[in-house]
């Protein structure tokens, strides 16, 4: 069933595609992260704009990915832009939702204390709101990373310069060669899992205070039962 020698022959190409896959995803996640963070912090306390942003990103999310890649070809050609634009757009909804939820999760008395201590609005955002939103921000980052790593395979539709590990999947499908489909699919899954685990560690490292909070709420829950 599985053609092991073929695999052994293509390890070089696997490495190349893996790196390509990683970078296609990383660029999209990075760009989406920055755009969303700017947008979310800007609209967080403006109710009307906030609805507009969440609404727009929800609509974008419903467009089928294959259609979006195809639709962009006449506009941006077979370029990196064509691959990245849809990937970025799909991250927006995840990020915007999580960032807003993170900012919302900051208790009102904490915001009030920050104002009363004499934080400027910017200082409050940077020193108080964003740090407290971190668990949900990094949560969004994990979700967006895993979902984008999956989607990168679809960009293989744009030809062999794109798609990362998806290249093997499209090739294998075209040649009706199962080994090659697995050869692309399984590393893609492993990459997603690995990135998720790394980000989980980052999350724990960045929010040491969340640990004693978990203990405290655990204690309360245990006491209540």
């Amino acid at each position: 069933m599985i053609d092991w020698p073929w695999m052994a022959d293509h390890l070089d190409e696997l490495a190349f595609r893996l790196v390509q896959h990683f970078f296609l995803a990383a660029i999209a996640v990075g760009v989406g992260f920055v755009i969303s963070l700017a947008a979310a912090t800007w609209v967080a306390r403006r109710r009307r704009l906030r609805g507009l942003l969440v609404g727009t990103s929800s609509v974008l999310y419903t467009i089928p990915s294959l259609a979006l890649f195809a639709a962009l070809v006449p506009v941006t050609g077979l370029s990196v832009l064509t691959a990245e634009i849809p990937l970025v757009l799909y991250t927006l909804l995840i990020f915007v939702r999580n960032f807003l939820a993170g900012l919302d999760s900051v208790a009102p008395e904490v915001l009030e204390a920050a104002d009363a201590m004499g934080y400027s609005p910017r200082g409050r955002l940077v020193r108080v709101e964003l740090p407290l939103a971190l668990p949900l921000i990094v949560g969004g980052l994990r979700l967006a990373s895993v979902s984008t790593i999956g989607l990168v395979t679809v960009s293989g539709i744009l030809g062999d310069r794109f798609g990362g590990l998806g290249f093997f999947i499209f090739e294998g499908y075209r040649r009706v060669f199962a080994t090659e489909i697995w050869f692309g699919g399984i590393p893609a899954i492993l990459l997603a899992v690995a990135v998720d685990l790394v980000l989980l560690r980052v999350q724990r490292r960045l929010t040491p205070w969340a640990a004693s909070e978990a203990v405290a709420t655990g204690r309360q829950a245990a006491g209540a039962s």
Binding site: V110, E112, A113, G118, S120, W209
Partner: peptide, 30 residues
């Protein structure tokens, strides 16, 4: 207002400590 608030100590009704900062960091805020 920002300068004024730094000259006025405020203990808010619900305490409102910054949960992501240690006790020491909370105290040295101003």
């Amino acid at each position: 207002p920002i300068v004024l608030r730094r000259e006025i100590g405020y203990v808010i009704q619900q305490v409102g400590l910054f949960p992501h900062q240690t006790v020491g960091q909370n105290v040295e805020t101003v």
